[in-house]
């Protein structure tokens, strides 16, 4: 029997974007308030999982042709590279740098090197979560 999933699919198309936007919000909120790359990554992964539930894995693979293992590796490299930059300035590992900049539209903004590290964390979390879920999900 074919189940009717029109409602799920229609809702998903809207909800996915809300989740993704919220993930971005949480990601940037992370420096001074709760949030960050880890939670942002989990939210993003949950949005993709929702898509996979509503449609099916082959369809999602077609619209998001991402190799999640490579994504994990790239995230890891970004994170290590950010942390290792401290080696070239001869300060202890993981020491972060920040400054205030006047950006158009945003006004005075503080930019942190920790953000780059968080992007790495974000990619690793998305990559690992999706690899795990895909591996289990594809297993018939």
């Amino acid at each position: 029997m074919r189940t009717n999933d029109v409602m799920l699919q229609t809702a998903t198309k809207v909800v996915t974007f809300i989740i993704l936007m919220f993930a971005v919000h949480i990601f940037f909120a992370g420096h001074y308030t709760p949030g960050g790359g880890f939670v942002g990554g989990l939210l993003t992964a949950s949005a993709i999982v929702l898509l996979m539930l509503a449609f099916d894995i082959p369809t999602i693979k077609k619209i998001l042709p991402i190799n999640y293992v490579v994504l994990t590796a790239v995230g890891l490299l970004i994170a290590i590279a950010t942390a290792s930059a401290s080696i070239f300035f001869d300060v202890p590992f993981f020491t972060h740098a920040y400054d205030y900049f006047d950006l158009p539209l945003f006004g005075e903004t503080s930019l942190h090197s920790a953000l780059l590290f968080d992007i790495g964390v974000y990619l690793v979390v998305v990559g690992v979560t999706m690899t795990i879920i895909q591996t289990i999900g594809e297993d018939e």
Partner: peptide, 24 residues
């Protein structure tokens, strides 16, 4: 070089991440 103690920990990590890019 204050970070020297970390090198034997970080170097294999970097190489492991690089190796994940081309498993075949």
């Amino acid at each position: 070089m204050s970070n020297l103690a970390l090198f034997p920990v970080v170097i294999p990590l970097i190489f492991a991440a690089i190796l994940m890019l081309f498993p075949k």
